[in-house]
Write a protein that binds this DNA or RNA. Structure first.
Length: 562
RNA sequence: GUGCCCGUAGCUUAAUGGAUAGAGCGCAGCCCUGCGGAGGCUGAGAUUGAGAGUUCAAGUCUCUCCGGGCACACCA
């Protein structure tokens, strides 16, 4: 039976122009995880197990046509393990290096919204996560040949602003104080945060103040001359401050939208569609979501002010008008997941041509060990405190003196820590524990990169183009695993893009670096005999390039020395 | 109550429906005459929250339950 299968499989593969040296059926004995002897493995179901043609087709589908299949092992109940020649992997690695690991272009215009810190408040590490996650997504999409429009959308108007400005006006300016004591931008932003906290508290506690704040809110919407100057001035403090921070994070936005701008546009659209998509209820204008298995939301409140909902409709309209995107991605913390289902539904009803072009990604919430972060109560860790703390730790552990190097390592550690797990998971953040500096961490990858670089610098005349590099007999586990891992770079990249998961890249890089460090520890590179030396340098070069490219996709800049 | 997300080692986590659930931190040991020890190796530590179902095969899919988070009308 098995002999028969073996013969007919061999014949079928030969008919398809695959020269297989050996086919073995029914040997379940494999070395560790099948990795060493099975550069590639296929799993097929029982139903097609005994049909050689189907097996052959599966194999052919999986193996690139140039590949040289050396041996196939068919293992019941349905595994096919096959060798490819080592030369295949070496060639693949060379091709990847020559193309700088670039893949086919997707050529879509994608508007990506992330960051979104509000003015008149201090951002917290939840915003930091948004910045880091969003920028990484942007880079991944770009690497695959898309045009990415980075968009920041900021709440510069609304109740939170009114709360802050009420406190600034009543508790500060009208008591005869002035802004002269606020020297730096950070002072100014901290001052606004304090005002926001005060205003929020009084809004809850004192009914007459609540009324005053609500009226102030209305005045800001109407651009009342009594408040507009103060609004503009304080708003600008926040915006200037964020620009500096964005620069530090390596983020360049293509476009800033503001709620003060989308409010008007949104309100107009809602009113135009009153009776069609929206209806009136208790003096408010709402969308009844229940008929779409969603929930009802208010778009214009009973004061006639557009809510966040209406503003997001206005924003969607503006984005489309400005960029005619193929896809618009909005990232927010996942507490807004249900909200966005409603908004996307409404957008599709209002603008049918945008159907399936809007998508929302909700990333995990960053909570503290002391509970949920809330800028209202002041229970927050802000990104600046975090950066300074991590910097201190890194300085202590690694004895780095150079300030710009220190900063790069710090951001590498922070960004990597945020990006190396599933974005949908909540993060319980502990200032002392959450940023890894050793092991599976940003600095580990930087270190590995520096190590590869150092080896290559010392290798002098290594030139990939001139060498033939035909290695038929690789006889150690580490080299083969590395070649295989490198060859699969693009499939990890594509998976990361399809699932919007930078952590797939982070994990891939870590595994690659681990393999390399083990290999490095075990075998000489520069002192190896000629042909081995060339192979090992090739691997080193590939690892270096992948780490550089991969870290860049995470928004992390590599360093030349550590 | 309804809907969505998450439960994997003490902690943080990985795993296109596939083979012995893979790491990091921490813990106990070991490796510098070597191309950078910010590294490497070894060990202890996991009935993948519980139970049923689908499948040749379930951490992964379906259902029920338990635990945590979030949202559900004028905040953003």
């Amino acid at each position: 039976m098995e002999e028969k299968l073996k013969k007919s499989l061999k014949k079928t593969l030969n008919d398809l122009n695959y020269q297989v040296e050996e086919i073995i059926i029914g040997i379940p004995k494999l070395t560790h995880h099948g990795d060493f002897y099975t550069p590639l493995a296929l799993q097929i179901g029982k139903k097609i197990k005994k049909n050689p043609l189907l097996i052959a087709q599966e194999i052919v589908k999986k193996i690139p046509s140039m590949a040289e299949v050396k041996k196939i092992i068919v293992v019941p109940p349905g595994f096919i393990n096959f060798y490819l020649s080592d030369g295949f992997f070496v060639d693949k690695v060379k091709q990847l290096i020559n193309k700088s690991f670039k893949l086919k272009k997707e050529n879509k215009t994608i508007v990506l919204e992330f960051g979104q810190p509000n003015t008149h408040k201090i951002p917290h590490i939840g915003h930091l996560y948004s910045y880091i996650y969003g920028e990484s997504l942007a880079r991944i999409l770009e690497f695959l040949g898309n045009k990415v429009i980075r968009v920041n959308y900021q709440g510069d108007i609304g109740l939170h602003v009114a709360k802050c400005l009420w406190a600034v006006k009543n508790q500060f300016l009208e008591k005869g104080k002035n802004f002269n004591s606020l020297k730096t931008l950070k002072d100014k932003v901290d001052f606004l945060q304090k005002g926001y906290q005060e205003g929020s508290q009084l809004y809850e506690e004192n009914k007459s103040i609540k009324k005053e704040i609500d009226q102030l809110n209305l005045k800001i919407y109407q651009k009342d001359s009594k408040i507009i100057d103060l609004w503009q001035k304080t708003r600008q403090w926040s915006l200037d401050f964020y620009k500096i921070f964005e620069k530090k994070l390596g983020i360049k936005y293509d476009r800033y939208y503001f709620e003060s701008q989308t409010a008007k546009v949104g309100k107009k659209i809602i009113l135009e569609n009153l009776g069609k998509v929206f209806e009136e209820s208790n003096q408010a204008i709402i969308f009844k979501g229940e008929k779409h298995n969603l929930h009802t939301r208010v778009f214009i409140n009973s004061y006639g002010n557009p809510t966040y909902e209406a503003k997001d409709i206005g924003l969607a309209y503006l984005k489309n008008k400005d960029y005619q995107f193929d896809l618009s991605i909005i990232t927010t913390a996942k507490e807004q997941n249900e909200y966005w289902k409603v908004i996307i539904k409404v957008i599709e009803l209002l603008f049918p041509h945008l159907k399936n072009k809007i998508s929302h990604l909700g990333f995990g919430m960053v909570n503290l060990t002391s509970g949920k972060m809330s800028s209202r109560s002041g229970n927050i860790i802000d990104p600046f405190t975090l950066t300074e703390e991590v910097k201190k730790e890194i300085k202590k552990t690694f004895l780095v003196k150079d300030e710009s190097l220190l900063e790069k390592i710090t951001f590498a550690a922070i960004k990597y820590s945020f990006l190396n797990s599933d974005y949908k998971k909540n993060i319980i953040f502990d200032l002392k524990k959450s940023i890894a500096k050793e092991g599976n961490s940003g600095p580990y990858l930087l270190y590995t990169y520096v190590r590869t670089k150092s080896v290559l610098t010392k290798s002098e005349n290594f030139n990939l183009q001139e060498k033939k590099l035909n290695f038929i007999n690789i006889n150690n586990n580490e080299e083969r695993k590395l070649l295989k891992k490198i060859s699969f770079f693009s499939s990890f990249l594509i998976k990361a893009k399809e699932t919007y998961s930078p952590n797939i890249i982070a994990n891939y890089l870590y595994e690659l670096a681990s393999l390399y460090n083990l290999f490095y520890q075990k075998y000489p590179i520069l002192k190896a005999e000629e042909s081995l030396r060339e192979l090992r340098l090739l691997i080193t070069l590939a690892v270096k390039e992948i780490i550089k490219n991969g870290l860049n996709l995470l928004g992390i800049e590599t360093v030349e020395k550590m």
